[in-house]
């Protein structure tokens, strides 16, 4: 399974680097990448290809991989914490919280921190988005809990409320924004990887690598959560601190993704669900596998939205929503009785 996913990921990444306005043969890509690593020095490669690859394609593919892995794994983690397969970051307002903070920072940054260097500015953005995501998660969690259990209906309704509130506040802020900021803000609302540069990749790298490294170790913990929080504690889990750590890691990943690519919905729903259908529900495997599948899915989705109606680019959020909403409805209908909405 892992081998298959990793192989598919490599192939998808290679294709994604190859296709676009300028087509680069896959062989050329290997040569160029090889050259960077100090291999194949006897070959000469096209400088034009090298330029496109270096400036446009590689950062874009890397960003897709990182954001996809982040959304996939955090979707799994958050569903585990909420004990609920519908808890998806964009549905329950976590992404909206992140994007609201990001928008606030974009507008403030120019006026307040105009002097900040670019990478530092991005870090600030990521931190802000992380804080927004964390706050929203905390809010939904507190609202949706009754007697130690999270209530699905309340959770989704709280999500609607937070989404609406964040949307309204974002709208309010756009009045204070200038043209350039407005363009940036619109981009948040739709979700896109078009902002990919080496800087954006580097700015989110730590915030995504840390959750990617740590969350897969929470497999046993999340499994016992599925038994119930009381049961998890009876099995020796420090429920509150584990929960806090997982939420911090997951919102960190979501926040970083939102900061550079806006709200890309439904990945956190699609990916874990698909993985569970294939390999079962044990988080020991679902966590790493959903990072891989998330990366794969977003790379492919990005490839589609870049090439489908080229030279115009579709927002990637459109593709993920097209795939995700039917699944969401399916889960809803299938488990209608259980959720008792």
């Amino acid at each position: 399974m892992y081998i298959f996913l990793v192989a598919a990921l490599f192939i998808a990444a290679a294709f994604s680097m190859s296709l676009g306005a300028v087509k680069i043969p896959v062989k050329e890509i290997f040569l160029i990448l090889g050259k960077k690593a100090g291999l194949f020095t006897q070959y000469t490669v096209s400088e034009r290809y090298e330029g496109v690859l270096h400036i446009v394609r590689i950062p874009r593919v890397l960003l897709g991989l990182l954001v996809g892995a982040a959304l996939g794994i955090s979707g799994t983690a958050i569903q585990g914490i909420f004990r609920n397969p519908l808890a998806e970051p964009s549905l329950i307002g976590i992404s909206a919280g992140a994007s609201l903070m990001a928008v606030i920072i974009i507008v403030m940054e120019i006026s307040l921190f105009a002097g900040l260097s670019n990478l530092l500015g991005y870090y600030l953005l990521v931190f802000g988005a992380f804080a927004g995501a964390g706050l929203a998660a905390l809010l939904v969690y507190q609202i949706s809990r009754t007697e130690g259990k999270s209530n699905v209906a309340t959770m989704l309704l709280a999500g609607i409320a937070i989404n609406a509130l964040a949307g309204a506040l974002t709208g309010l802020i756009t009045f204070a924004a200038d043209d350039q900021q407005l363009r940036n803000i619109t981009f948040w609302m739709l979700g896109s990887l078009a902002g990919a540069t080496w800087e954006t990749v580097l700015s989110i790298l730590p915030f995504i690598l840390v959750p990617l490294a740590l969350l897969p170790r929470m497999g046993k913990a999340l499994n016992t959560f599925a038994l119930g929080e009381v049961q998890a504690s009876q099995l020796g889990l420090k429920v509150n601190s584990v929960k806090r750590n997982i939420v911090i890691l997951a919102t960190m990943a979501v926040g970083a993704s939102v900061a550079v690519s806006g709200i890309i919905g439904f990945v956190g729903l699609l990916v874990p669900h698909t993985i569970r259908l294939i390999i079962g529900v044990d988080h020991k495997h679902v966590l790493p596998a959903s990072a891989l599948l998330g990366a794969l899915m977003l790379t492919l989705a990005d490839l589609l939205c870049r090439t489908l109606i080229a030279p115009v680019e579709l927002p990637i959020g459109v593709i993920t929503a097209l795939l995700g909403t039917p699944l969401f409805l399916y889960i809803l209908i299938k488990d209608k009785k259980k959720f008792a909405l």
């Binding site: 004990r83 609920n84 397969p85 499994n223 959560f225 599925a226 038994l227 119930g228 009381v230 049961q231 009876q234 569970r276 079962g280 529900v281 044990d282």
Partner: peptide
Amino acid sequence: AVMNQQNIVSLPF
């Protein structure tokens, strides 16, 4: 160890 009265498992383990 504790055998609880209510045991709702949230995922199909």
